[in-house]
């Protein structure tokens, strides 16, 4: 594992470069195929509304996959991620228009631990509302 960020170069409070991840209906169809999660709430508007959702929603695991990119882009080596957890607090609603939705992700170093490991706390929002809670990663730096 060779993270390009050195443990000695980061402090508690160091911010990771924030990212925006667009998601539209085509994104969800593609993710369904790649992940094998074909739950119709992620592609069938009629079904989503029948079960009480406002519209088609993104896979929670899609949002989780995007959020960790803030960390893996920062370290360079995705293998530097030692632990990663999230709570799915609110769905990402994806309308059938030419815009879709945008997931905004930020992260900062919340603690420096032993063995060159840091804890990164992530924030993920869509339309200004938090979509992930308790979103944290342990990352081993160089």
């Amino acid at each position: 594992m060779t993270a390009k960020i050195a443990y000695s170069d980061v402090e508690v409070g160091t911010e990771l470069p924030a990212r925006s991840f667009p998601v539209d209906r085509a994104t969800l169809v593609r993710y369904a195929g790649a992940s094998g999660d074909f739950n119709p709430i992620h592609w069938n508007e009629r079904f989503a509304k029948e079960v009480g959702l406002p519209d088609v929603i993104a896979h929670g695991m899609f949002t989780m996959a995007e959020a960790i990119r803030v960390v893996t882009d920062w370290t360079g080596d995705p293998g530097a991620v030692v632990e990663y957890g999230v709570r799915f607090t609110r769905p990402v609603v994806v309308p059938d228009d030419d815009k879709g939705a945008v997931i905004e992700v930020g992260g900062k170093v919340a603690a420096k631990l032993d063995d060159h490991t840091v804890r990164v706390d992530l924030t993920a929002t869509c339309g200004g509302q938090k979509v992930l809670g308790m979103s944290r990663a342990l990352v081993r730096l160089a």
Partner: peptide, 19 residues
């Protein structure tokens, strides 16, 4: 599908360079 171009996922040499 998640739009991630990190070469560690697709390029064996890049992955090896990371160990």
């Amino acid at each position: 599908a998640v739009g991630d171009p990190n070469p560690a996922y697709t390029d064996t040499e890049a992955a090896k360079a990371l160990g």
